[in-house]
Amino acid sequence: MTNYFALLGLPEALSLDPEVVETSWREKSRALADSSSGSEAPLDHPDLNQARSTLADPALRLAHWLALRAPDSPADRSIDPSLMDLFSAISPVLEKTDKLLASHRRATTALTRAMLTHEAIDVQLQIQELLQRIQPLRSSLTGQFDDLEKAGGEDDFQPATRALGQLKFLKRWEEQCRERLLSLIAC
């Protein structure tokens, strides 16, 4: 497996400044472009792009770090009690949104679409509220990164695995919420 930290010349640290990742990606891309000459050697570097998108995202970064340090640690798929409330709040809103979007897709006239506006605004607000609940939960997990690294230094990867499980849930929910929000915006 490619070590993305090494590829971008960065320390194998869980807490990374996104700006540092960005700067390093630019430098490496520029160097690659300068060394390639025209169409003979096209600027084709999926690994660099992959490294950038992985390291810029806390959940993906943690997953990559774990895969490098403890490739055999089993995944933790349980939902922490602290996320349970959010979990039970998200599904009904997503379901409601999907129904609304389906009606919107069926609507072919300005009038039938306008009939849905009221509800669309309503669910948009609900989704935004959910997104606001996700933020602090994620921050509290990324706030543990230094501790996770320390534990990892002592060969204890269980806390990191646990945090990754939670971060993955949050990431997925956030993506689902954002996707619905974008679809609603495009209504």
Binding site: T109, M115, T117, H118, I121
Partner: peptide, 19 residues
């Protein structure tokens, strides 16, 4: 469809003013 454009606009406006 064309005759109901104004009606549609009024509906949208009403939905937003409810906010």
């Amino acid at each position: 469809d064309e005759a109901t454009q104004t009606l549609a606009a009024i509906l949208v406006e009403a939905a937003f003013s409810g906010l």
